[in-house]
Design a protein around this nucleic acid. Structure first.
Lengths: 202, 202
DNA sequence: GGAATTCGATACGGTATGTACCGTATCTCT
DNA sequence: AGAGATACGGTACATACCGTATCGAATTCC
């Protein structure tokens, strides 16, 4: 967000009083804290401003609504790069990638993603933002990696990489949204093994 | 819901004026219509009552909030029984079951389920209701059916039925919540084939 | 010094919530 | 027939949050 970034890339040529550089982070921290303490329903622009020690207009000047704030707060916390490890076998590198995502979602980041996905069902712009800023960048890395695995003979040659990603990652999100369980490594391994070996008896 | 059902099972022994038997359905229809027309965010108890031609207190007397109404509206529309067909091969009966669910979710029922799942992230009671009234009853049918398939030699003997269900159905819900695609039969078949045959080259 | 912008603060109108009544209607029990 | 209980549509009320507007002060560029 932060659509008012009038700063030129080359130099700082803006007229008026500059924004306090710490305000951004103060607001994001306040929003994240409040969501995790009391849930998104109890979150209000008022409470965010109060917790951040900031006027309400200062918040509205930078974000259009609370969902956009939580979105940015998620990215401020979540490490966007969970790479495939190359020190293991190809197949195991996928398993470890799944485990890494699950581990990240097990804590507060999972709680934020849960909130964002839910709110996105009522907010098309947020849905688009999640797709463009989170889902698509991840696919852009995953698809070529799976295609490489196909070329190298680790995966079946007739598979669709995007469908593979759906199959492997969807249970993780389903557990996040509907699950009673805790996204344990054991669960992830089960999903992974079932998917890799296939369900049908050969 | 309808927690005030004071009616005895054997006979109608209640004192005061009985509830109008049509009001229930009028409210459910009004709520479903409004959600599908304008979305859950724009839905209000006031609007529901107005559309149903009913006082607002009449709504509050029967449901605690709008999510509970939409929940009941979903069940009033959705046929809870999508059985496994026995006129096909065992493996194909699973594929057809997946397709049937996808077909149901392709239209208005999917819209309602999407709304319910989203709101459930902010409402623990609704989350419990979805699990107990929708997810669990369905698992109770699916698990034994898959166990039978294992016994009959159609499925790998070392699989966990609950994990299989996650693997097969999670992509469907993920598409419902995050998807750009339309839950087409083609997509379902791809998920199904990938899961059945497995991803790893043998 | 003047214009522009940010800052914290406050006021405002609009909307939805949940509760409390009101007068009326309809049923059961005595 | 009468009393008690409950449902009905309607309205009023206090509360909360939203999004916008405006204020005076502060800070920066030209």
């Amino acid at each position: 967000m932060d659509q008012n970034a009038k700063q030129s890339v080359t130099s700082a040529a803006v007229k008026g009083r500059p924004r306090n550089p710490r305000t951004q982070q103060r607001i994001l921290n306040a929003a994240a804290d409040l969501v995790l303490e009391q849930g998104f329903k109890a979150l209000s622009m008022d409470a965010i401003a109060g917790r951040a020690g900031v006027g309400r207009m200062t918040v509205y000047r930078r974000w259009p609504n609370k969902a956009a704030i939580v979105m940015d707060a998620f990215f401020a916390r979540m490490d966007p790069n969970i790479p495939f490890r190359t020190d293991k076998s190809y197949i195991d590198s996928i398993r470890l990638q799944l485990r890494a995502i699950a581990k990240a979602y097990r804590g507060k980041n999972g709680e934020l993603m849960r909130t964002l996905l839910a709110e996105a069902q009522f907010d098309p712009e947020l849905a688009t933002a999640i797709r463009e800023r989170w889902v698509m960048p991840r696919r852009k890395i995953g698809v070529p990696y799976l295609e490489q695995g196909i070329r190298d003979g680790f995966l079946r040659p007739d598979l669709d990489p995007n469908v593979m990603i759906d199959l492997l990652y969807a249970p993780l999100y389903l557990q996040l949204l509907m699950g009673t369980s805790t996204l344990s490594d054991g669960y992830i391994d089960k999903i992974f093994d079932h998917a890799m070996r296939g369900l049908k008896r050969v």
